[in-house]
């Protein structure tokens, strides 16, 4: 437990800034995970997944420009 001891009184402005950014980044990451893996959002997020395959069907050509 000694290892985890923190001298809160000695925290400088820079230390607090660091804590703030670290916690904010952590929360933001969690938020993104929740958002992306929410089953309700699956369909909309996945709706463009076949985009790479569409060009064959929709505007198929050999890629020659002339």
């Amino acid at each position: 437990m000694d290892y985890l001891h923190t001298d809160w009184a000695a925290m400088s402005l820079n230390d607090w800034l660091g804590v703030f950014f670290t916690v904010a980044a952590f929360v933001a990451m969690i938020a993104v995970y929740v958002l992306v893996f929410n089953p309700k959002n699956k369909e909309t997020f996945n709706s463009q997944g076949d985009m790479a395959l569409r060009d064959e069907v929709e505007y198929n050509n050999s890629g020659d420009k002339k």
Binding site: A25, A28, M29, V32, Y33, V36, F37, N41, K42, F45, N46, S47, Q48, G49, D50, A52, L53
Partner: peptide
């Protein structure tokens, strides 16, 4: 791009790629 094209299958999970992009980028 090329795995879907070569295999003829859409991306397994496009929402995973959304996650992949933003987390790696940040």
């Amino acid at each position: 791009y090329f795995i879907p094209k070569q295999s003829g299958r859409p991306v397994f999970s496009y929402r995973l790629s959304v996650l992949h992009f933003w987390t790696l980028t940040f």
